[in-house]
């Protein structure tokens, strides 16, 4: 009588299989077949031609993630140190840009960075030399950092918030100075937040096609653009598109795996001590 309700999960499991598992299996299927549904690895080998795109994507999103971490961690730390009332306002301010549609936010940067855009108008007003930013890698990284920075700040902040204040007092009591308290206690404890922040910035950055299209022009193609072209662009080829998607999934899984490995090895090390 008490566990009848667990049978509700059966239709849900069917739902998950149809709409989560099957789509991913289809990607696998398309990646390894041609138009005649015959097995082939040509699609996968074909992806090799685009290795420069992959390198470019990984590089730009790694740089963007690093910048987000360098900017986001101190920011999250500062927020966690504020009085409680101010904290919730600060968190809302961090989230505020996320509420504006992602496309419009990016579009706004387009109008700022354009050659005749707001930034250059200001520079011109002060008789400074104009900057060529739009359609460069710098602009793409800027777009990534601007769009995804909140995803770095919020998880780090929420982990920092939960750190037991008595641990910090205990560390001080045991003779740790401010720097030691941070490096030996606060930072190690905040690692889960850093890991999820890095994941949440890296994954959308490495797979974006909107930012690269709008701020990078045609010159800076990323993995996302490549996939988009195979499904909705002129070079319609869902088999190649699936192969690229598959490799993207694998890349993301490997990155998450490495990150989690780092985090859990740290945890187990702490436990055994």
């Amino acid at each position: 009588m008490k566990s009848k309700s667990k049978w509700i999960t059966v239709p849900f499991a069917v739902w998950v299989i149809i709409f989560t598992v099957v789509p991913l299996v289809l990607i696998l299927f398309f990646a390894f077949t041609n138009e005649d549904k015959i097995f082939t690895i040509n699609n996968i080998t074909h992806v090799g031609k685009y290795s420069s795109v992959f390198v470019n994507s990984l590089l730009l999103s790694a740089v963007a993630t690093a910048i987000c971490l360098i900017l986001g961690y101190p920011f999250a730390y500062l927020i966690s140190k504020m009085p409680e009332k101010v904290q919730s306002i600060a968190v809302i301010l961090v989230m505020l840009p996320m509420l504006m549609n992602f496309l419009l936010r990016t579009y706004a940067w387009m109008t700022i960075l354009e050659n005749n855009g707001i930034l250059n108008s200001v520079l011109k007003f002060f008789h400074l030399p104009a900057l060529n930013l739009i359609n460069t890698k710098k602009a793409v990284v800027l777009g990534m950092v601007y769009n995804f920075l909140p995803y770095m700040i919020l998880p780090i902040y929420s982990v920092l918030m939960k750190i037991d204040k008595r641990l910090i007092e205990a560390a001080k009591d045991l003779g740790a100075g401010k720097m030691k308290v941070f490096s030996k206690v606060i930072f190690p404890l905040s690692k889960p937040g850093v890991v999820s922040g890095v994941t949440m910035v890296f994954v959308p950055s490495v797979s974006t096609f909107v930012i690269s299209k709008m701020l990078g022009g045609g010159a800076n193609i990323l993995i996302g653009d490549l996939i988009e072209m195979q499904f909705l662009g002129n070079s319609y080829n869902p088999h190649l598109g699936s192969a690229i998607s598959l490799i993207l999934i694998l890349l993301v899984l490997i990155c998450i795996g490495i990150l989690n490995q780092y985090d859990s090895s740290l945890n187990s090390k702490n436990k055994s001590q």
């Binding site: 289809l26 959308p204 797979s207 996302g224 598109g241 998607s245 993207l248």
Partner: peptide, 12 residues
């Protein structure tokens, strides 16, 4: 990645 979810649903 969202784009993967998008294209996989499209294929489905």
């Amino acid at each position: 990645p969202e784009i993967v979810t998008g294209v996989s649903l499209m294929l489905t």
